[in-house]
Each structure stands twice: as structure tokens, then as C-alpha cells.
């Protein structure tokens, strides 16, 4: 039995996904033994956040062929909404420390960020992507990419114009002592952020795999004409996909407000990291994006630990470029790419 099992494992280890996952696990374990378990905890928390942003990005790319450059701005919108919801709540908590809001107030803010991200996504579909799609789909990938570049500049500067450029942050969502995991003290906020992202990614995966709507989204991503023939309302699916993708970014921004205070360009770092993930892991593959998120998080954490803060763009991007030379379609990507080549 075990021999049979091994005969499956060994060929898998020789493929690109197997090799990269195995190497990252070995590196993670080695670094944890060398530097201490806090490294692993950091990696898990960063990876959870990245997974949220990167699944949204990979959804946009895989289903709609939009290389989203403005995804970080929905992260920013989420954190902004969470800030404006949570500030009055925290004032209320200060006056009434026994209220039920102490536990559930943060959830209201995070759900607000989720809904706000979804609404912002839907509005941008109605105002920006919809008109472009109706006018022409020639050279769609490049045109929509430039459109999202414009959208990103627009949202960043609208934030600056309306809300100002100062940091709008909070001290923390949940008060109380940090939780101790394997001799590492982790603040409650970090634990909750990870739990929230894990739950949402799991729900999202189940939604995409088992519900009719999720299947419809996947059908559209494979063949838009075929999906139309079997009676799927394309416009509705597109709207839903964009809203979902932006909601994922928004909830990431909302639940990480304690780490990333809201300011105009807060979204750039998650955006760069999410693009690292998507290009590294290949396109349109949710599980691949989640795995890739943890690999990139590991790269980032290890770089910060052994090379120094501030190098966390240089080393991961150099490594990803190196991987791309040998595997141009990403670790988990198939070799068929089609429309995105153009």
C-alpha cells in the first residue's frame, strides 16, 4: 500500500508544482528551525492575506481576461470603509465596554468592507469595463490593462482629493492579551485576520466548485460563446465576477486595517505581491493561487529575515523572473494560454 502511494508521490515531485511545493516546505521548515517559529506564523498570516487578493486577481484574469492593475485600490477602498465604520464603533466601545459590539463590532466593519468592495467593483464594471466591452473587444487584454491603469490612478487620487493623504488607521480590532502559539505571541487581530481569510477562501472555493453560479463562472472562463449557447446570462456573470473579485480585495483591506492604515497608495504593495503570486502560479487556478500566495509569503518573510527589510521586492521578483525563464506559464499553469498572449 505504502509502496503504491510512493509511486504516485515520486513522479509528482518531479513536476514543477511538486518540486516547488516540496522545496518551499523544506525551506520553511529549515528557516523555522534556524530562526524560530515566529517566521512560520508571519508567513501564514501574510500568506492568508495574499491569498485573498491573489484569488480575486486570478479570477479577473481567468474569467474576464482583464489584467487588473487597479486591484490594490479595492484593497484601499475596503480599508477606508472599514476605518469609517470602525471609528464610531470604537468610540462607542470606549463608553460602553460591556456592549456586544466589543466582539462583533469588528465583524461589522469587515463585512462593510466586503460589501463596499463588491459595490465598487460593480460600479466600475458598469462605468468602465462594460462600455469598453460593448464598443470593441479587439486587443482586449492590452486595452483593458491600460484601462485599469487609468482606474488605479483615478482611485488613488480621488482618495487623496476627498479624504486627504494622511494615515487613517486604528490601534486594533479586538482588545485583550495576545494568544500564544508555539511560544510565539500573536495578537488576536492577526489570528482573526488569518481565520477570516481562510474561511473566505474556503467558502469561495466551495462556491466556485459546487454551486450552479460558480459553475457558470467557470464555464464563461472556458468558452464564452459556448456558455452563451447553453443559456448563461453573460452580462450577469461578468458583473458578479468583478463584484466578487473586488469584494475579496476589499475584505482583505478591511481585515488588515490594523496592519495597513488606509492612505492613498496603500494598495500598491498588496497589488505587487498579488501579481507576483499570479504570474508565479499561472492563471485562472484558484488552488494554485492559494499555494502561490504562501510561497510568495515565504519568500518575502525569509528575505526580510535573512537579507533585510526593504529587499522584499528585489529578491522575490528576481527569483520569479528566474522561474519564468524556465517555466513561462507559471508553476501551476497549463501550457495553453490563448487569449492572454496577445
Amino acid at each position: 500500500m505504502s509502496k503504491n502511494y510512493m509511486s504516485h508521490i515520486l513522479p509528482w515531485l518531479k513536476t514543477a508544482p511538486g518540486m516547488s511545493i516540496a522545496i518551499s516546505i523544506v525551506v520553511a521548515v529549515a528557516a523555522t528551525i534556524d530562526a524560530g517559529p515566529y517566521l512560520l506564523v508571519n508567513m501564514v498570516v501574510t500568506g492568508g492575506m495574499l491569498a485573498l487578493v491573489a484569488t480575486g486577481l486570478t479570477l479577473m484574469l481567468g474569467v474576464l481576461n482583464i489584467p487588473m492593475f487597479a486591484h490594490g485600490e479595492y484593497f484601499m477602498i475596503g480599508s477606508l470603509i472599514a476605518y469609517y465604520i470602525f471609528t464610531p464603533i470604537s468610540e462607542f466601545i470606549l463608553e460602553h465596554p460591556e456592549s456586544w459590539l466589543v466582539t462583533f463590532g469588528p465583524f461589522i466593519a469587515i463585512i462593510g468592507a466586503l460589501v463596499g468592495g463588491a459595490i465598487a467593483g460593480a460600479i466600475s464594471e458598469k462605468l468602465v469595463f462594460g462600455p469598453l466591452r460593448r464598443r470593441s473587444t479587439d486587443n482586449w487584454v492590452m486595452n483593458s490593462f491600460l484601462l485599469t491603469v487609468g482606474l488605479s490612478v483615478l482611485l488613488i487620487n480621488l482618495h487623496q482629493l476627498i479624504f486627504g493623504a494622511d494615515f487613517k488607521g486604528i490601534v486594533g480590532y479586538w482588545q485583550g492579551m495576545p494568544i500564544s502559539i508555539a511560544d510565539v505571541y500573536v495578537s488576536k487581530d492577526r489570528v482573526m485576520a488569518f481565520i477570516i481569510s481562510a474561511v473566505i477562501v474556503a467558502l469561495f472555493y466551495l462556491f466556485m466548485t459546487y454551486t450552479r453560479t460558480g459553475m457558470a463562472i467557470r464555464a464563461v472562463s472556458q468558452d464564452i460563446t459556448g456558455a452563451e449557447i447553453v443559456g448563461i446570462d453573460i452580462e450577469k456573470i461578468v458583473l458578479l465576477t468583478i463584484a466578487l473579485a473586488c469584494a475579496l480585495a476589499g475584505v482583505a483591506g478591511g481585515s488588515l486595517l490594523f496592519m495597513y492604515p488606509s492612505y492613498p497608495t496603500v494598495g500598491l504593495e498588496p497589488l505587487y505581491m498579488a501579481w507576483f503570486v499570479v504570474i508565479l502560479s499561472g492563471l485562472g487556478n484558484i488552488l494554485g493561487a492559494v499555494t502561490g500566495a504562501f510561497i510568495v509569503a515565504l519568500l518575502k518573510v525569509i528575505t526580510m529575515e535573512y537579507v533585510g527589510a526593504g529587499w522584499d521586492f528585489v529578491v522575490p521578483s528576481a527569483l520569479i523572473m528566474f522561474i519564468l525563464i524556465f517555466k513561462p506559464s507559471g508553476i501551476f499553469g497549463s501550457d495553453v494560454r490563448g487569449v492572454l498572449d496577445k
Binding site: P67, V141, M142, F145, Y272, W275, F276, I279, G308, G310, W311, F313, V314, S317, A318, I320, M321, L324, I325, P328, L340, D341, K342
Partner: peptide, 25 residues
């Protein structure tokens, strides 16, 4: 060379980010 379209754009982007990171550090 082996990349096309948006992949090549991303590669040059990452390259730019890496160069800028070097200039900062």
C-alpha cells in the same frame, strides 16, 4: 523572449521593481 503579451509586460515590470528596490537599498 519566451513570454508574450501581458506576461512580458509583467516581467519588465518586475524587473523595474527590482531595479528600483536596488536603487533604494
Amino acid at each position: 523572449l519566451r513570454l508574450r503579451g501581458i506576461f512580458a509586460a509583467c516581467l519588465s515590470w518586475f524587473f523595474g521593481l527590482a531595479v528600483m528596490g536596488l536603487a533604494v537599498k
